[in-house]
Design a protein around this nucleic acid. Structure first.
Lengths: 189, 189
DNA sequence: CAAAATATGGAGGTCGTCTCCATTTGTCAA
DNA sequence: TTGACAAATGGAGACGACCTCCATATTTTG
């Protein structure tokens, strides 16, 4: 799809530095108080370099998001390999909430930055969606989950949890959504 | 809370014009291609006037959102008065999806604009949340819905539906979320 | 109707964004 | 190692959107 041309050594290094700094600043929640130029300086990089690697704030967010998705997918695979389907699904969804809770700033920043281009978000989370699809398919096969509601609906609910990150009682409500979704999946309509 | 001082006649008129134009442009999806200054001109208003009424794009979105919320709340009240609790709840949630579907551009624009200040969103949708809370409370009283998951979780799921407005299969997935939520609410855990 | 209060609009200052290119750094072949 | 070529760098400055400010216009009040 994308013929990634090999990056020169220093370019690679700068790119990494930018991503690392981004993750840091995102999580600290200070990204929007920062001029984009200053962000470059903070990462020890010139303005031009920043723009060559990430033409927009959104592009930067997308790259960071990719990393997160990869982590979560690994997690899903691990769970699926070690637990019965129903438990794996539940553990994964609960785990996602834990993860978001542990990185609130990051979650909030990403949600905000990708609000426009949520097409990009959908693109970027395709892998994640596949993981959820697999988890659900396995549970369906075990006969413990209905087969008339697909993974997209679950993704949407997750999206809601991520997007609503400043509700005063976020954690409890997020757990509530997961509970509803899981019980709704088990229900026979 | 807010001691709304009475607005002068012409001010009222301009304000209305701005809101009407906003609704139009939002729904057409062209808001982000427009300089804020030009939006003012489009509404037949000077830049200064626009800024006095709505200091930011977000403030404008919030005002439009208020109108939407009011409409939906009316709808909720009507349903609650005419249907058994469980049906009223279901009809309301399904109805919201219909409404969003019929005004995709508006929904998307609002979701995008309020991504940052989703605290403002929470603020603005307090009335909506109250309506959902009432619908659920009535259903709980009828003994047809569990009482250990509160309205906040449902709001979060709805938020997800609104925020994910450009998923390719939005409508089906949104319906799926509602199904999961409703069945999850009926389930006894 | 005059005066006071309120609202208007758009010219121009401010400030973040992004481009451009002279310079530096990395790579590779001889 | 060295020279030559390609790739990458950074930051000065042009650009353009946002927002303020106030002389003017409109509404309201006494």
């Amino acid at each position: 799809m994308t013929a990634d041309k090999p990056l020169r050594a220093d370019a690679q290094r700068k790119r990494e530095a930018l991503l690392a700094t981004a993750r840091e600043v995102f999580d600290a929640g200070g990204f929007f108080d920062l001029r984009f130029d200053d962000f470059a300086r903070l990462a020890g990089v010139g303005t031009g370099t920043l723009y060559r690697h990430f033409p927009t704030r959104e592009a930067l967010a997308e790259a960071v998001y990719h990393g997160e998705v990869a982590t979560l997918c690994d997690c899903a695979r691990r769970l699926q390999a070690t637990l019965p389907a129903a438990e794996a699904l539940a553990a994964f969804l609960r785990g996602m909430v834990d993860h978001m809770d542990a990185h609130q700033g990051l979650a909030r920043t990403l949600a905000t930055l990708m609000a426009d281009r949520s097409s990009a978000l959908a693109e970027g989370s395709r892998a994640l969606e596949q993981a959820v699809t697999d988890l659900i398919a396995a549970a369906v096969k075990d006969g413990v989950v209905r087969d008339d509601v697909d993974a997209g609906a679950v993704m949407m609910a997750l999206h809601g949890i991520g997007a609503a990150h400043d509700r005063p009682d976020w954690r409890a409500e997020a757990d509530g959504v997961i509970t509803l979704v899981l019980d709704g999946l088990v229900s026979r309509g």
